[in-house]
Design a protein around this nucleic acid. Structure first.
Length: 123
DNA sequence: GCCCTGACTCTCA
DNA sequence: CTGAGAGCCAGGG
């Protein structure tokens, strides 16, 4: 069992679960993840939650936090920072092109079909 | 409760 | 496209 006595915020967990649905090679925006997690208007909370993702993943699966970017299609981390570089590299490794911290949403934004959501996010 | 902070977002110039 | 401003909502002090 995971004896991590961390104070798990159920909202953070909901955010991690939605993040795990973002397919490899695609990205989603903070606002998009917030909406799908049932937390409209809380995009800033998504950033907070992703910063707290357990290194070991969640429920046996990894949480691709690096697939979440801002609505402008840009990486929302301090340019040049360690975290920024990790995100940029992770995305590039799976085929997402990052130019000067910018990603073409036209090409890489995750646009799930309603049927897909109904299946994964058991309502 | 008030004030401030932040991996956000929208609007407008 | 870029920047400033305002709006937004949890958390923490």
């Amino acid at each position: 069992m995971v004896t991590t006595s961390e104070h798990l915020n159920p909202k953070h967990v909901a955010i991690w679960r939605v993040t795990q649905l973002i397919p490899l090679g695609k990205v989603a925006t903070y606002g998009q993840v917030a909406d799908l997690a049932g937390l409209p208007g809380r995009a800033r909370m998504v950033g907070k939650a992703l910063g707290l993702v357990p290194e070991s993943g969640w429920q046996g699966n990894n949480v691709p936090w690096y697939r979440v970017i801002n609505s402008q299609g840009r990486i929302s981390l301090p340019v040049g920072s360690d975290a920024f570089e990790r995100q940029r590299q992770s995305l590039m490794e799976e085929g997402v092109i990052v130019n000067n911290g910018r990603i073409a949403l036209k090409t890489f934004l995750w646009q799930p079909a309603l049927s897909e959501l109904l299946f994964d996010l058991d309502y």
